[in-house]
């Protein structure tokens, strides 16, 4: 395989993502973990972008960085003592989680290496957004509607819970 400029960018982005992922687990301050997590999300978005999946990359930034990371940061800030205090790195479950982690990694690596991934020699469609929109309101209209109802229910439910009585 030829080593192209794209590989260099991919390696840099992947390295950045892995570094951020490592930062999430090794940093002692929870807020720093959250910041590393934002970096990891951004790295994944950049990988999507490299794969020319612009929509997925933007959705990643909007949902994971714009919403979920903000939520995590708020959760950390509102939990007493976690903001400033230095969290302990390990607890009594360290051994078990190490085993589970290694097994999960082995399983994923095995799947990744063993499965024949179907590869299609075809360029990505130039502007896939209209196609996606059409698919949402034709082929996938029922899942789309179900998700819409679910989200509305969640929104109304959250308001009902937060309401003062």
């Amino acid at each position: 395989m030829e080593f192209t400029f794209l590989h260099v960018i991919f390696l840099a982005v992947a390295g950045f993502t892995l570094l951020c992922g490592l930062g999430v687990v090794v940093s002692r301050n929870l807020f720093h973990s959250a910041i590393w997590l934002i970096g990891a999300f951004a790295g994944v978005a950049a990988i999507y972008w490299l794969l020319e999946a612009e929509y997925l990359a933007i959705a990643q930034i909007m949902i994971y960085i714009g919403a979920i990371a903000t939520l995590i940061v708020f959760a950390i800030m509102l939990s007493r003592g976690m903001m400033i205090g230095r969290a302990k790195m390990n607890n009594f479950q360290a051994g078990i989680s190490a085993v589970v982690g290694i097994l999960l990694f082995a399983l994923l690596a095995f799947i990744l290496l063993q499965v024949e991934w179907p590869v299609v020699q075809q360029a990505v469609v130039a502007d896939p957004i209209p196609m996606m929109g059409q698919a949402f309101v034709t082929t996938y209209v029922i899942p789309f509607q179900v998700i819409a109802v679910l989200l509305s229910v969640a929104l109304v439910g959250a308001i009902m819970i937060a309401r003062e009585r």
């Binding site: 933007i58 930034i61 909007m62 714009g66 990371a69 903001m83 957004i129």
Partner: peptide, 23 residues
């Protein structure tokens, strides 16, 4: 092709920055 969505996604980054500055 996702221009306006990109614009909205970026404003999320600003709010993270402001929150970070405040904390």
């Amino acid at each position: 092709s996702v221009g306006l969505l990109y614009f909205i996604a970026m404003s999320g980054i600003a709010s993270i920055g402001a929150l970070m500055a405040g904390w």
